[in-house]
Design a binder for these strands. Structure first.
Length: 656
DNA sequence: ATGGGAAGCGCC
DNA sequence: TGGGCGCTTCCCAT
């Protein structure tokens, strides 16, 4: 491939070409659906995912494809090249699209008679249709988003497909309430709605996406080839025709059923079982959301808005530009900025650059950014409802971490956490201490790190002691911070440069050669880490999949340093998050209050004031820490009147 | 008017 | 040339 930048082939142009070739494209809130009237496949692409050329190949061969058009344009270009040959021009792409074939018959838009009797082991596929959401913000309909509404629930059993409007509660409950396995396609979403409508689901929960997530680390936003669909029509937005919605819903349930493979070994895998138990619980957390103190949020909001006005006035004295625009800021600060450039060829004006900048506007702009973020991303959206809800998903991250969307409950600033809580209740925080480092020590079989964890020592301080050649008791706070920086950076492929950057964010300063010395010393102190990283690189080069201790797999092409570092990180991060989910499962039924949030290595619980019982929580924390004997986890337990005011009570776990 | 990409920043 | 997420704003193309 020549180094010359290829001619752009915009997504909209591709869609237009597809449409010309008789491919039906329908705009939906969640993206654009491309519908070909022939067999059938669903895939979704998103920017952070390494997509497979097969995806577009399938599309161009006339499969039924759903694309989330979040991928960068050059990614589309690479696919086009791979599919239609190097140097593909739009005309060649059009020629490839021309291979789209006219279709075979699909399922008709009619409903079957619901069966009177269902054999007990027969899987029942369930699909929910909803309407509403905020299209401009890509927010799908959710119970807490107004306007949003449950329209109908569809079912598919064996060769039968049928649906009921949401008002027909008796019939919906009749089929949800059987002991048959219930099959969903991205279950959390349907579960949130069914839970909100107070339906009771009996039988085990299955999801057609889980096995794929375990097998190749595909998130819901990632590449998702889900198999053969027999009904490939998509529902137009805002259709007033209930009959049409019902048939669509039933046919989609049918599609879901066709994707379900009950004989897959994954269906009996411990992680799959875990997801079956956790999915309804996570849906419940999503629906409940975080309670907050409205008066506090309003006060903080007013304060922040006033501060923004003051800062804007101050900046206006310096230059009358849009200080949110990186381009305009770069133009004003010019020579005062450090000589760094973004991948897109623009001057870097991020916070780190501003801190190095002598210009009088820099300090003011830093504060403006901070307050702007707090107002725009957090406080203003919070005030729109009486609680803060986000859709927590089990399989959006390739590593198996949970994530939270449509308000992210996992990145709320520490400074705002004191706004969350409930009158008459206390907030209990259960937190895995240094979870990823423990997992890394186990996976790499690092004897010294493991010994420290087993003995309950502070690993960062011990690391610092090794690096600075002094007794661990005389390690200073700054030296410990260096140790922490090294531990987190070097496990996953960090360089001397990244160590310096990280250290700067901790308020430490040292030179590149110093960082290089620390790096060498770290690998010398932990020879098993060196060996483990080398072994992972060998697997990558040999094309072997990367595996986690719990059996997740990732096939990663070793093309770039990013992918090599991903291979180092994925099994560690995923194991740490699986441990938290396993721990949450282990303690769920003995918790004295509802779980209100999950933040990667933290579980948050609300309890009525005055019911704190240390012995009870010690027991809970012990169960949590001992969830898997291979991993010497420690759990920190804190309690307080709100999320931000929790105070650590004790630590439970190995050697405590 | 609308949507995608880039930059930036919040968290673990 | 640590990883993993999601959200907002600006800018530009359609």
């Amino acid at each position: 491939m020549s180094s010359q930048k290829p001619t752009a082939y915009p997504v909209a142009r591709l869609l237009l070409d597809l449409r010309r070739q008789g491919v039906q494209t329908i705009q939906r809130t969640s993206g654009v659906a491309l519908v070909c009237p022939r067999h059938v496949r669903t895939l979704e692409l998103q920017s952070r995912v390494q997509v497979n050329a097969l995806a577009l190949a399938d599309l161009l061969q006339g499969l039924h494809v759903t694309l989330h058009l979040g991928i960068p344009e050059d990614a589309w270009w690479r696919h086009l090249e791979q599919v239609a040959g190097t140097g593909t021009k739009p005309t060649a792409a059009r020629a490839a699209v021309a291979t789209v074939l006219a279709g075979k018959p699909m399922l008709p838009d009619t409903l079957d008679e619901p069966p009177a009797m269902i054999p007990e082991t027969e899987p029942v596929a369930v699909d929910v249709e909803t309407i509403g959401g905020v299209a401009s913000d890509h927010r799908v309909p959710l119970p807490w988003v107004d306007p949003s509404e449950l329209v109908c629930v569809g079912f598919s059993i064996a060769n039968c497909r049928f649906a009921f409007p949401a008002s027909d509660r008796a019939n919906i409950q009749r089929f949800l309430g059987t002991s048959n396995p219930k099959v969903f396609h991205n279950a959390i979403y349907d579960l949130v709605w069914l839970l909100d409508a107070a339906f009771e689901i009996r039988g085990s929960v299955h999801d057609t996406l889980w096995s794929r997530a375990f097998e190749n680390g595909a998130g819901v936003h990632g590449l998702k080839v889900t198999g053969t669909f027999t009904y490939a029509v998509h529902l137009p937005e805002k259709t007033p025709d209930l009959a049409k919605v019902l048939t669509y819903c039933a046919n989609d349930a049918r599609n879901t059923l066709s994707l379900f493979n009950p004989t897959s070994p994954w269906c009996s895998h411990p992680l799959y079982r875990l997801y079956q138990r956790m999915a309804p619980r996570v849906a419940a957390i999503s629906r409940t959301g975080l309670p907050f103190f409205r008066d506090r949020v309003e006060a903080r909001y007013a304060e922040a808005v006033a501060r923004v006005a003051w800062l804007d006035a101050a900046l206006g004295q310096i230059a009358r530009i849009n200080w949110r625009s990186a381009d305009q800021v770069a133009h004003v600060l010019e020579e005062a900025l450090p000589n760094r450039w973004t991948p897109g060829g623009q001057r870097v004006v991020d916070d780190a650059a501003l801190r190095e900048c002598e210009h009088p506007a820099a300090a003011v702009l830093l504060e403006k950014r901070e307050v702007d973020k707090v107002v725009g991303t957090y406080l203003r959206p919070f005030l729109q409802r009486d609680r803060v809800c986000g859709l927590i998903t089990l399989n959006a991250a390739r590593t198996g971490r949970t994530s939270s969307r449509y308000t992210n409950l996992q990145n709320i600033p520490r400074s705002l956490r004191t706004l969350f809580g409930k009158a008459g209740h206390d907030w209990v925080k259960l937190d895995f201490a240094a979870a990823e480092l423990v997992v890394a020590a186990v996976v790499a079989e690092c004897s010294s790190l493991l010994a420290w964890f087993r003995e309950g020592k502070d690993p960062h301080a011990e690391t610092a002691a090794r690096i600075f050649h002094k007794p661990s008791l005389s390690v200073t706070a700054e030296e410990r911070a260096v140790g922490k920086t090294l531990n987190f950076s070097l496990c996953y492929g960090g360089t001397a440069r990244t160590i310096v950057q990280r250290a700067t964010s901790y308020g430490l300063a040292f030179s590149l050669p110093e960082a290089a010395t620390f790096r060498t010393a770290w690998f010398a102190a932990f020879p098993e880490m060196t060996a483990w990283q080398a072994e992972t690189m060998r697997q990558l080069e040999d094309g072997e999949p990367i595996r986690s201790p719990f059996g997740r797999m990732w096939t990663i092409p070793p093309h770039s340093s990013h992918e090599r570092n991903m291979a180092l990180n994925a099994p560690i991060q995923s194991t740490a998050s699986d441990l938290l989910l396993l721990a949450a499962d282990a303690i769920w039924d003995v918790l004295p209050g509802p779980v209100v949030n999950l933040v990667h290595d933290e579980v948050d619980v609300l309890i009525p004031k005055g019911t704190w019982d240390e012995a009870q929580w010690r027991d809970i924390a012990r169960r949590m820490a001992g969830v898997d004997a291979r991993f010497p986890m420690r759990v920190e337990v804190a309690v307080g009147p709100d999320w931000g005011a929790t105070v650590e009570q004790f630590v439970e776990g190995v050697s405590v």
